[in-house]
């Protein structure tokens, strides 16, 4: 079993209004089988023992499906392993790259204010979902399976879009801190299904309106989000969102209110 000492440069920020700075730590005897977050846990144990403030970072399921964790490691959102969240990143993958020094930063976007250290407030994503990321349909009692026919390729495509866990890596990786990939995935997974058709026009207008209102940047088609996404959400969904919005805004008679 391989162990290694690592030098960490961790972003420490006391609160949203603190300017923050990098702090240097040495992580001693890091085990190759540790996950990235376990490595931070051990560093925090040492900090606590010395009476120092531990490093704050978000995490929940630690199995790569909840979307809670996320830090930028040496410039990679969720670290260098493709299609992997920070919690499922393992130290052996970092050892393989020969990295001895890690720069660990929070998602950096004006719309994701830092709460503390590496933890950011992703409430903006919640508000985009609240704006229209749902189907307000009365479902009544349980219906028969296959009562609403959905072709297999459509349900597969909707599932591909629904894979988005809302972690915010797309915003973190985007040169413009744009939330286009997240918003597009959420609009598309509902817009593909028959149940989502009734609100399709309003949904895209409301969700894009909220996305812009939150102050995210615009999409300039670099494709960074797609590569950083731990779930491999495709930028094809962004084209679909653009198409849906252009169609909705040019054909719908009703106005959508813009929030100020």
């Amino acid at each position: 079993m391989k162990t290694k000492n690592l030098t960490l440069h961790v972003w420490r920020q006391r609160g949203p209004n603190d300017s923050g700075d990098f702090e240097r730590y040495v992580a001693k005897d890091v085990n190759e089988h540790m996950s990235f977050l376990e490595m931070l846990d051990v560093v925090n144990e040492d900090l606590l023992e010395n009476g120092d403030e531990p490093i704050a970072f978000d995490h929940d399921c630690r199995e790569g499906i909840c979307g809670m964790c996320g830090v930028v490691v040496n410039g990679y959102a969720h670290g260098p392993q493709e299609r992997t969240t920070a919690c499922q990143l393992h130290m052996r993958q970092i050892f393989e790259l020969g990295w001895d020094e890690l720069w660990i930063e929070p998602w950096r976007a004006t719309s994701f204010p830092v709460i503390k250290d590496l933890a950011v407030d992703r409430g903006a994503f919640d508000r985009i979902i609240q704006a229209g990321g749902y189907i307000s349909i009365r479902t009544g009692s349980a219906r028969d399976a296959n009562e609403t026919p959905i072709p297999k390729d459509v349900s597969d495509a909707a599932m591909d879009a629904a894979e988005c866990i809302g972690c915010g890596a797309c915003v973190a990786a985007c040169p413009n801190a744009s939330a286009s990939l997240f918003t597009a995935a959420k609009i598309s997974h509902l817009g593909l299904l028959p149940q989502g058709q009734a609100e399709r026009t309003d949904r895209v207008r409301k969700m894009v309106g909220q996305m812009d209102h939150e102050g995210f940047g615009s999409c300039t088609n670099h494709g960074e989000c797609e590569k950083a996404c731990p779930k491999g959400i495709s930028i094809d969904w962004i084209a679909r969102m653009n198409r849906d919005l252009l169609k909705a805004m040019t054909t719908s008679a009703d106005d959508i209110e813009e929030r100020d």
């Binding site: 440069h9 923050g20 990098f22 930028v72 040496n74 410039g75 990679y76 720069w103 930063e105 950096r108 976007a109 004006t110 719309s111 990786a173 040169p175 413009n176 801190a177 744009s178 102050g215 995210f216 940047g217 615009s218 300039t220 088609n221 670099h222 494709g223 960074e224 797609e226 590569k227 950083a228």
Partner: peptide
């Protein structure tokens, strides 16, 4: 308009940032 918006969307820059997908043309628009 988009340029000024996008500048404001990330006021604090990364110390390290790795480009994974973008190309020279996209970065120099």
């Amino acid at each position: 308009s988009l340029w000024s918006r996008n500048r404001g969307a990330r006021k604090n820059r990364y110390a390290k940032k790795k480009d994974l997908a973008t190309d020279y043309a996209a970065k120099t628009m």
